[in-house]
Design a protein around this nucleic acid. Sequence first.
DNA 1: CTGATATTGATACCTGATATCATCAGTTGC
DNA 2: GCAACTGATGATATCAGGTATCAATATCAG
Lengths: 149, 149
Amino acid sequence: MASNTVRERILRSGRRITPQRDAIAGILERAEQPVSAQELCDAVGEVDPQIGRATVFRTLQSLMEAGLVQRITIPGAETRYLLCSTAEHHHHLVCRECGAVEELPERGVASFLARVEREHRFLVDHATFDVYGTCARCAGREPEPAARP
Amino acid sequence: MASNTVRERILRSGRRITPQRDAIAGILERAEQPVSAQELCDAVGEVDPQIGRATVFRTLQSLMEAGLVQRITIPGAETRYLLCSTAEHHHHLVCRECGAVEELPERGVASFLARVEREHRFLVDHATFDVYGTCARCAGREPEPAARP
DNA sequence: CTGATATTGATACCTGATATCATCAGTTGC
DNA sequence: GCAACTGATGATATCAGGTATCAATATCAG
């Protein structure tokens, strides 16, 4: 299933499958939220304390190059890594409450980018569009229960 | 003029004017491109070698809080700092060729964000939208003259 | 001018990430 | 299955950007 797919995707990108990569990909796969490098190192250490930091970062690098992982750089916060369901370029809706990340497909942004290109006479090569806020699930709950009778 | 405005803006934010802040703001003001922390430290050192790195970073912090400076975090590249003409939230078009930065006003993005909110039932709090590509001026020149007869 | 207080500079420190390099293990051809 | 070629690993050192500490200093309101 999914695990197999990740393995296949790693193989297809001309990389080798190793227990370390398996472990790291598995952790990313099980994480519903993007994880920081530190969290990932800790989680990896629980699976196999032998796995070194360098391997974790190298694996992230490889997976990013293969398009399996995206790095989410939140200004003023930790950089996080996310296993993406698609290798296509896309953007993220990050919930500040629960940390959940929703993927915003490129085509949702394309028409907007086209307008930017037209209005600014700017040849767009790459755009990062990360949106922070509150997801539907968290917005449903009351954030301040004490504020209500 | 502009220098005065920066001073005023610093003062209005309840901060003191110091020669160090003056120097740092001046460098940012004269830079047409966003500068990295390292570049800024170097440039500051040329003005006054006494000014320490900590002061540079603290000043950047202060100016960011005051809305005078924005930090541009390019994944996989250096973080850069940019003196912005407006304290309002806005986005950037960064030219990869010449490094020039064009400001994209929030209102240009607002309607797009509204659609995202509607379609994803997501309450947008903050969005960073940084676009990389080629500006009109650089696109006008031939990037590969050898490729043409 | 003067004092309360924000600011500074030197330094140490932290975290995320990368470089090095000898060793090890997948993969491939047979 | 086996050897060997090559990519991957782990330990370590190192780097860069950025922050914390703290005594000394400078700013600005009164």
